[in-house]
């Protein structure tokens, strides 16, 4: 699945440090302010894999939009390697829950999007091929998105992010809409891509097992407006085992934090 070109170490791909300092945010809905983030402070070391867990609609995805620079925070600061995040930049790429591939572009041209937008596609075509090889879709360069399955489409969207050699990869429930088998295999793939490329990863999910299987740290948020509730180290080496009793303990603890301890 993985070609030799893809395995070559990527020089730019070293993770960046991320600091979220006392960030608050609200939406204006019909004139009323709807608070979504309440004094959130959190940081990720370069190359760290952090999962953000919280009840549905608590504001985790909003935090990711702020990290991506798609919106400015109403209060507080976000820093990438000490520099304030002022807008979107290809060093911080988001993979959304929907693959949002451009249906009028072939798979190859979808992956090439970032390099094309930055005006460097002419000299960097090989990076597109390498990214496609990395997610095991080399044979689908000329396919259109409507010809792909859900899992393949999400792989393409992963390749579209990775082709930019991001310092911070932001994953907004990227596996949320996949069937459970595809989901498990892609979890393993994400871990190996992260280990190989070394980017800092921020994963929003509401799947506790997914967070524990993937991340070095799991940050638990409260209901909206999101406040930091717990910051849990997952001190287990990779590759992890899904039946690991330590992970099961952590899972019970986290479900308790989310108010679901009665079920387990």
């Amino acid at each position: 699945m993985v070609s030799a070109a893809a395995l070559k170490p990527q020089p730019q791909a070293a993770g960046a440090a991320l600091d979220v300092v006392d960030v608050s945010h609200h939406f204006d809905i019909d004139g009323a302010a709807l608070p979504v983030l309440d004094h959130v402070t959190l940081s990720a070391a370069p190359g760290e894999f952090v999962a953000l867990l919280g009840p549905s609609g608590c504001g985790k995805s909003t935090l990711l939009r702020l990290v991506a620079g798609l919106e400015p925070p109403r209060a507080g600061r976000l820093l990438e390697d000490g520099r304030v995040i002022a807008g979107p930049h290809p060093s911080r790429v988001v993979v959304f829950q929907d693959p949002t591939l451009f249906p009028w572009r072939t798979v190859w041209k979808n992956v090439a999007l970032g390099l094309e937008a930055q005006g460097i596609i002419k000299s960097e075509r090989h990076r597109v091929d390498a990214a496609l090889a990395m997610v095991g879709l080399s044979g689908f360069s000329n396919a259109y998105p409507h010809q792909l399955s859900g899992g393949m489409a999400q792989r393409v969207s992963l390749a579209r992010a990775l082709v930019n050699d991001p310092d911070i990869l932001v994953l907004d429930e990227p596996l949320g809409k996949l069937d459970s088998l595809t989901r498990l295999s892609m979890q393993t793939e994400i871990v190996s891509l992260w280990q190989r490329q070394g980017f800092t990863t921020l994963l929003v999910t509401h799947d506790v097992e997914e967070a524990l299987f993937l991340a070095q740290r799991v940050v638990v948020f409260s209901e909206r407006p999101a406040k930091l509730k717990a910051d849990i180290q997952v001190d287990r080496p990779y590759p992890r085992h899904r039946g690991d009793p330590h992970l099961a303990d952590l899972r019970r603890q986290i479900l308790g934090l989310l108010g679901l301890d009665a079920t387990w």
Binding site: P88, P90, D98, F102, L113, E116, R160
Partner: peptide
Amino acid sequence: AYYDVARTLGAKPSFLVFKVAIP
């Protein structure tokens, strides 16, 4: 969502018009 994707990938406004909005 298309604009969000393009913007995070480094697209400038002209790219958003000609390569996203129009197609």
